[in-house]
C-alpha cells in the first residue's frame, strides 16, 4: 500500500523532456512503476514508443541504467544483464543489491517478443517484465497487434466497407503468462495507481520472474482527448474489459471489483477507434464484445473463487 505524499519524496527516475505525445499513458505507467523501487534498478526496454521517446541522443530521460537493444528481445536482454549480475556478485565484483525491470509494448511483448519473454520467464531470472499495452503498434502508426481488441479500427485493420475493423478477439496474454507458473503475474492500470504500484512492489519482492500487464491507452490510436487518458483507463476497469487481478504462486485474486459492472458500449463510444461500430448493421459486434467481456469476467471470478 503506497502513500502518495511519501511517493513524492522518492527520486523521479524518469525525467521530463521525453518526446511521448501529450497525455501518453506509457510514461505514466513507467513513473508509477519506478516509484515502487527501493533498491537500485536496471531497466531494459524493447523498441517502441517508450524507447524512442525517452532516448533520443544525446538526451535520455532515464536516471537509472538503461538498455535497449532491439524489438523482440527486451526479456532476453535483461535476462543477460541479470545473469551477469549473478555472476559478478558471486565473484564479489558487485556488492550492491540490484533489481531488473524489462519494459515492452504490446507489439514487443504479445507478438514479436513473445518467444523471448516466454523463455526468460521459464528460465526463472529474477526480473520483472512490464508490458505497457496500448493495444496496437503505435510507434509505427497504429497497426493491429494480437493485443488489439475486436472491432478496433487500426491502420492494418481499418474499418472498411466490408470488414468492420479487427475481426479477432485479443490474446489474453496475462493468462498465458500465468500458465508459465511463475511466482507473480498481474494485470494493472495506472488510473488505479495504488493497485499498480503495490503490484510492482510485490513483483520486485518475489524471487524469480514476475510479469505485469499494464493497460496504457494511446490517445492517438484510440482517438480520445488527451486529458481523458486516466478516464479511459477507469472505463476499462469499470466495464471489466480490463479486470485488475493478480496470480500469486498460482492463486488467482481479483484486486479490484467494480461496484457496478458498466456496459462496454459507453466506453467504446468514447474512443474513435470504435466509432464505426455504432453505424447501422454493426451493432452485433458490440454485442459480441460485451458477451466476450461477460464470459471472461465470469471465468476470472470463478478462477479467483469470487463468483
Amino acid at each position: 500500500m503506497a502513500n502518495l505524499r511519501d511517493l513524492t519524496k522518492k527520486e523521479e527516475l524518469l525525467c521530463g523532456g521525453h518526446r511521448a505525445c501529450a497525455g501518453c499513458a506509457a510514461p505514466i505507467a513507467v513513473r508509477q512503476a519506478l516509484k515502487a523501487v527501493d533498491t537500485p534498478v536496471v531497466v531494459g526496454c524493447a523498441t517502441g514508443c517508450l524507447e524512442v521517446t525517452t532516448t533520443i541522443y544525446p538526451f535520455t530521460s532515464w536516471r537509472v541504467p538503461f538498455i535497449h537493444s532491439a524489438f523482440e528481445n527486451s526479456a532476453a536482454t535483461i535476462s543477460g544483464v541479470e545473469a551477469a549480475y549473478r555472476a559478478l556478485k558471486k565473484k564479489g565484483k558487485i556488492t550492491r543489491d540490484i533489481q531488473f525491470i524489462a519494459f515492452g509494448g504490446d507489439g514487443g511483448t504479445y507478438d514479436i517478443g513473445f518467444q523471448s519473454l516466454s523463455g526468460a520467464m521459464e528460465r526463472g531470472h529474477d526480473m520483472v517484465y512490464i508490458c505497457y499495452d496500448n493495444e496496437a503498434y503505435m510507434n509505427t502508426g497504429i497497426q493491429r497487434s494480437s493485443a488489439t481488441p475486436k472491432g478496433a479500427s487500426t491502420t492494418t485493420s481499418p474499418a472498411g466497407k466490408v470488414i468492420p475493423g479487427k475481426v479477432q478477439f485479443r490474446k489474453d496474454l496475462t493468462a498465458v503468462m500465468a500458465a508459465h507458473n511463475i511466482p507473480y503475474v498481474a494485470q494493472a492500470v495506472p488510473s488505479h495507481w495504488n493497485d499498480f504500484i503495490t503490484k510492482v512492489q510485490k513483483a520486485l519482492a518475489v524471487k524469480g520472474p514476475a510479469f505485469i500487464n499494464v493497460l496504457a491507452p494511446c490517445r492517438l490510436g484510440w482517438q480520445f482527448d488527451p486529458a481523458e487518458t486516466i478516464d479511459i483507463m477507469r472505463g476499462a476497469v469499470e466495464t471489466c474489459f480490463w479486470p485488475l487481478y493478480e496470480v500469486e504462486n498460482g492463486v488467482w485474486r481479483v484486486t479490484h471489483k467494480p461496484r457496478e459492472k458498466k456496459p462496454v458500449r459507453g466506453w467504446l463510444e468514447k474512443q474513435g477507434r470504435f466509432r464505426h461500430l455504432f453505424r447501422p448493421g454493426n451493432e452485433h459486434i458490440i454485442e459480441e464484445i460485451q458477451a466476450d467481456i461477460d464470459r471472461n469476467w465470469e471465468a476470472l471470478l470463478a478462477r479467483a473463487g469470487a463468483a
Partner: peptide, 25 residues
C-alpha cells in the same frame, strides 16, 4: 564460475550475451 543461460533461440542467445556484456561481464 559461469552463469550459463540456456536460451530458447540464437536470437535470444545473442541478446542475452549483449545484455551481459553491457553489464560488464
Amino acid at each position: 564460475d559461469t552463469e550459463f543461460v540456456t536460451v530458447e533461440s540464437e536470437h535470444s542467445a545473442m541478446s542475452a550475451t549483449i545484455g551481459a556484456s553491457a553489464a560488464g561481464a
